[in-house]
Simulated assay, not measured.
Amino acid sequence: MIAYLLLSVFPAALLIAAANDIYEFKIPNWISLVLVGVYPAAGLAVGAGADILMEGALIGAAALAIGFGLFAAKIIGGGDAKLLAATTPWLGLGSLGVFLFNTALAGLVLALAMRMFRKLPILPVYAHAPWLIRLHERKKDLPYAVAIAAGGLISFSQTPYFQLVIGG
């Protein structure tokens, strides 16, 4: 029961990050901290070995370094870099490629959808939802946590923790 509860933190955190990024163009640090903090506890709860925990930690450290390089180059935002780094340990090396592909594909769909949305005129109904106006007017910004969340959720069933829980 505890294993399922701790395992549910991953999809819940990704959904909260995506919603917050759409709403405010920000990903709160506490979401990444929760993902990083619950990762080892979830691993112990599902019976993951030290090798799986260490692999995740190393992947997360590498993702953080790469993410901050992309942030420094102004390719992605700082919140996106931290969310990617906090997400990758959960995925493990085996499903990392699938996650990155799914995230890139979701990012492409997101970019196309945002482009079409931003070509439409601002409707009067948006006055009741200021976040829609922000989403419409910030033409160079993309709430990429949506793509990260989509990639993570689509790849979740292939993660080592999920496989341990379902007996795969």
Rank of each mutant, 00 (worst) to 15 (best):
R134H: 06
A85F: 09
I16T: 14
A3I: 02
E137I: 02
A104E: 11
V165K: 13
A3R: 09
A42G: 02
I52T: 14
F156K: 03
E55H: 12
L58A: 10
G67L: 10
V125K: 11
I166L: 13
F99S: 12
G151V: 09
M114W: 08
Y39D: 02
K139F: 02
A104W: 13
L142N: 02
V9C: 11
V146G: 03
F10C: 01
I66G: 04
R134G: 02
L35P: 07
P28N: 06
A85I: 09
K140W: 05
L6F: 08
H128I: 00
M54N: 10
L84Q: 02
A149Q: 00
F68Q: 15
A113N: 09
M114R: 03
A65P: 02
Y161S: 10
F101C: 04
F71C: 04
L83R: 08
Y4K: 01
A129E: 06
L120D: 05
P143H: 01
A18N: 07
A12F: 13
P28R: 06
L70E: 13
L53N: 04
I31V: 15
D21R: 06
K119A: 12
I133Q: 12
W30P: 00
L5T: 10
L91M: 15
D141M: 07
A45H: 01
T87W: 07
R134P: 00
A111S: 15
V109P: 03
E24S: 14
A18M: 05
I52H: 05
L142I: 15
D21G: 08
R115I: 07
V46W: 00
L120N: 08
G94C: 08
Y144F: 15
M114L: 15
L33N: 13
I27S: 10
Y161R: 11
I75V: 13
F10W: 09
S8Y: 06
K26G: 02
A106H: 07
G47E: 01
P40F: 00
L112N: 00
Y39T: 00
F68R: 14
A41Q: 06
K82P: 06
D51W: 04
L105T: 12
M1P: 11
K119T: 01
E55N: 15
I52Q: 13
A42R: 02
A57L: 13
W131Y: 12
L100S: 13
R138W: 10
L35T: 11
A147N: 09
R134E: 15
